[in-house]
Amino acid sequence: MDLENQRRVKEFAEKYGPENVVVVLGASEGEAAGLAAETVTAGDPTFAGPLTGVQLGLTVYHVCEPEIKEEFDPDVYEDQISMMEMVLDVDDIVNEMSAIRDEYCKYL
């Protein structure tokens, strides 16, 4: 995850409390989504950014996961996300995200 985004996620967690922050990802690949999810839960796996060694354990979802989809106004989802939903390997993304959440999320 981009170093600046890591810094912002860290700041939000400190400001609002980690239990009150949900990170929503839009990565186009399961692996990339998993890496970002790992960064905001277990710490930066590349050991480069502000989240290196910081285990925030934030709640994190991909926008195409069913838990997030049902939060949306269906018209907005249709307008903004449905095309990508057709394109992405949603099952792969759900598997990656679930694995990371099960292992590292502290607030579920």
Binding site: S28, E29, E31, A32, G34, L35, M83, M84, M86, V87
Partner: peptide, 16 residues
Amino acid sequence: GAGDVPQSNYKMIAAL
């Protein structure tokens, strides 16, 4: 982990 970028674009154009 960034996938096949041209292919992702073609999938999006086709889906549209």
